[in-house]
Design a protein around this nucleic acid. Structure first.
Lengths: 211, 211
DNA sequence: GCTATCGGAAAGGTACACTATCCATATGCG
DNA sequence: CGCATATGGATAGTGTACCTTTCCGATAGC
């Protein structure tokens, strides 16, 4: 197929596809003449992945490029790749870290039997420290009390996630499933948590008949 | 205090504070002369809240304005206010909804005993439908299988959230705690889920010694 | 042959979140 | 008092991110 059909089948405008090609988010098509190229289903699949990362995952174009590079890297074991991809899809944001928040993270991580030393070493722990710093900055200096119940609930969720991903066929599908499952899963969790809030708060403050 | 001290105490540059004042994110200070105004701790608190919403919650300036308006609204009961604030902090994003994804949401919601009809009525259900649509668009058409385990884990988490918020004093603190707890909680959950993934996947694929 | 479309490059556009400049006025210190 | 510095308010400008538009000569397909 040519770019017009790729556009029709994906819902992405042609100029945007050209832009993604320029930015290296989409591999070039096979040239059949100096100004005709052919795209296949793999391009369509990749294009839809890019849109999902951008629209649902909220990733920047640069972050998407990093993720795709990690996915496409052929020189790593599955384990290394999963780590690289996880780093790529976990942007910590910017701002100052409260040392007390860093302590909270270290204490939490140690409570689980890990022995990390450098919180800024991984994007994930950095993310957590950033969030706890923000909590402290707005006066919530006991937010870390929630970490243990969060982990308890998330163990159930992560177990389901891993089973979901492990069910996939090839290692490439596992990687891609992890990316999609993590980012779309974040969005799903956000929504379901809000639904759960509504249900849980109903028990406490009632339906509005009495507050 | 005047704007300079507000800036020093919050870490937010003076021009940015002026911008927030212009945009209505921060109430004007009390004028003591035509070009001198006085700000208090409430302004500082509000300013830090704005930064937390923007930096950690990832909210746009317009969304922050909506949230603050919902917080400040004096004409609603606590229950109504919680609902309005929850809508304000739940942006569904844009894109087309897959009818099958809408069905998935309806089935899920009904499974919990609710009887919603219109998925687009609430931002929260719309968010969920958007996420499941995105999953389908990248070929994950059984992502909804995860909804039940997610809810199971999230019940534990939401319970902790509600207890955390209920511990606060005044109704205003409850509202503010819900905003902070929801948005910062989203970020914390994201990070902790990734940590839980690492732990859970270790059991399945090992430490990298064998994959 | 004729119209629509193509690939590729370059310039343009839009939205957002600040940031800089100006100015007349106030503050605060010596 | 004198004078550097800071202030509130208004207007204009900046930088980044993500596309769009416009152009070109070449091809596709009827």
């Amino acid at each position: 197929m040519r770019v017009g059909e790729l556009s029709k089948r994906s819902g992405v405008p042609v100029p945007t596809i050209k832009y993604y090609l320029r930015e290296g988010l989409l591999p070039a098509g096979v040239l059949t003449s100096p100004n005709q190229a052919h795209y296949d289903d793999e391009h369509l699949r990749r294009l839809r992945l890019v849109r999902a990362l951008v629209d649902v995952g909220g990733l920047s174009i640069a972050a998407v490029r990093d993720v795709l590079a990690a996915i496409d890297n052929r020189d790593e074991s599955l384990h290394e790749k999963l780590g690289a991809v996880q780093e790529a899809i976990s942007q910590p944001g910017s701002g100052e870290l409260d040392p007390l928040a860093v302590e909270d993270v270290l204490a939490f991580v140690r409570r689980q039997g890990e022995e990390y030393c450098d919180v800024t070493e991984s994007n994930v722990t950095h993310m957590l420290a950033m969030a706890l710093s923000a909590a402290r900055s707005v006066g919530h200096d006991h937010f870390h009390d929630l970490l243990d119940p969060y982990l308890e609930g998330l163990k159930i969720i992560a177990q389901a996630d891993v089973e979901y991903v492990a069910r996939r066929g090839s290692p490439d599908d596992v990687i891609e499933g992890m990316v999609v499952g993590t980012l779309i899963g974040d969005a799903v969790l956000k929504a379901v948590r809000r639904l759960a809030h509504t249900q849980a708060s109903r028990k406490v403050i009632g339906d509005g008949s009495a507050d």
